[in-house]
């Protein structure tokens, strides 16, 4: 055998990865909470829950919330509307769509795996995961390319912005490569990229509460809550 096959399941089963990610997610949510509190502000993204889940007009609240978050954020009405170039806006959009997809389909994939046993590579869930990874990669590439190609923007960019975008790029790239390589049979490379994929995701979870993303999450939820109250007042 030319390459030593490094099957991650030897030392890390799928379940243990899931548990690790879940634990880290909870940890990172706590970190995010602490970080936002360290700014000395009252509002946290969790306030959105308390203002939605009240008995008074609950269904209307949920409807508005979905409407606002889908229209304003997911379909870029507000989140991307005033980026001065379309390239920038779509870069952000693609990254967001990819990342959202990645989160959702990974969870579905994991559930399928646990319920129905190992899924084949050509299973639509796996395909969707791969597509999401590709989107994350392209989005991050677009954003990084924009930042790198313009000198004035490049010069005024914070190190944290570079780091965050690079992390996204790594997540998308390593995940997608791991999938493609496993199709073509280069399993050891695939495993290598898979480890990279998991580690960059782990890094992301621990790091993002300290990055600009924490602000974006905070501001996004703040605006959503405010629109919710506005709509309710009408």
């Amino acid at each position: 055998m030319m390459y030593a096959i490094v099957d991650p399941s030897i030392f890390l089963s799928l379940n243990s990865i899931a548990i690790l990610i879940l634990a880290l997610t909870i940890f990172s949510v706590i970190l995010l909470f602490m970080r936002i509190r360290s700014w000395g502000v009252e509002f946290t993204p969790f306030s959105i829950l308390t203002s939605t889940f009240t008995k008074d007009r609950f269904s209307k609240r949920v409807r508005i919330l979905l409407n606002v978050s889908l229209r304003d954020i997911f379909f870029l009405r507000r989140a991307g509307a005033w980026c001065e170039e379309n390239f920038h806006m779509y870069g952000r959009g693609v990254l967001m769509w990819g990342f959202t997809g990645l989160l959702i389909f990974s969870v579905i994939g994991y559930l399928f795996n646990t319920i129905f046993g190992h899924l084949s590579f050509f299973n639509p869930v796996n395909l969707l995961i791969a597509l999401s990874q590709l989107l994350v990669f392209s989005g991050a590439t677009m954003l990084l390319f924009r930042r790198l190609s313009r000198k004035n923007i490049r010069n005024s960019t914070d190190i944290h912005t570079w780091l965050l975008q690079l992390t996204f790029l790594l997540i998308g790239l390593s995940g997608f490569l791991s999938y493609i390589l496993s199709l073509t049979g280069y399993m050891n490379f695939s495993y290598g990229f898979y480890i990279m994929y998991i580690s960059s995701f782990v890094f992301f979870l621990v790091y993002y509460p300290f990055s600009e993303l924490a602000f974006l999450v905070w501001k996004g939820s703040l605006l959503t809550t405010e629109s919710l109250h506005e709509e309710l007042a009408k």
């Binding site: 991307g80 313009r150 923007i153 005024s156």
Partner: peptide, 14 residues
């Protein structure tokens, strides 16, 4: 202030 879209153009020309 929440109108800011965070595009960063301002920082690039300051």
């Amino acid at each position: 202030v929440y109108f800011c879209s965070g595009c960063g153009l301002c920082s690039s020309v300051c």
